[in-house]
């Protein structure tokens, strides 16, 4: 189990750096720890609360958040969360695993093949995501 903590630490550093965690913890928990997909997803959500909560505090000391956008994104997000979690508990776990794989391929592909942007995005041209 100690290696779970080590992997979690490095995934959290990547998340805080802004290169993203993209659910890598889910891959670890399903393949190495042999947890069911849905259980791993639930743990990844909990993990995100702690890792991103900590990085948000540090980020907010340096960069202001767009409060208006946050307030306008939340209503749709709340509705989407209810729909998404309901779908997650209806769909077969094998399908969820495949969908998760497709999400990783898209996410990895975007990060790998996108052009560098000048003065856009994170400093020094990093590719960031937050969940």
């Amino acid at each position: 189990m100690w290696w779970t903590a080590i992997i979690a630490f490095f995934v959290a550093i990547l998340s805080g750096l802004g290169v993203g965690s993209a659910g890598l913890l889910v891959v670890f928990l399903t393949t190495v720890e042999q947890l069911p997909q849905l259980t791993a997803q639930g743990l990844n959500l909990l993990f995100f609360l702690f890792s991103s909560g900590a990085s948000l505090v540090v980020h907010m000391l340096r960069i202001p958040i767009l409060l208006g956008c946050v307030l306008l994104l939340l209503p749709g997000g709340i509705l989407g969360t209810f729909l998404g979690t309901a779908a997650a508990h209806i769909l077969p776990q094998a399908l969820l695993r495949r969908l998760f794989g497709i999400l990783l391929i898209l996410s990895g592909g975007l990060g790998l093949f996108k052009k560098s942007r000048k003065n856009e995005g994170s400093p020094r041209g990093s590719s960031r995501d937050s969940g």
């Binding site: 997803q41 994104l73 709340i78 969360t81 729909l83 779908a87 997650a88 998760f100 975007l110």
Partner: peptide, 24 residues
């Protein structure tokens, strides 16, 4: 913004990750 939030919430609820990418 509502639609982006909807998609991000759905993805996050369905797969436990990925919503942040969509918002960014």
């Amino acid at each position: 913004l509502f639609v982006i939030g909807l998609g991000a919430g759905f993805l996050n609820g369905l797969l436990g990750a990925g919503g942040g990418i969509l918002i960014v």
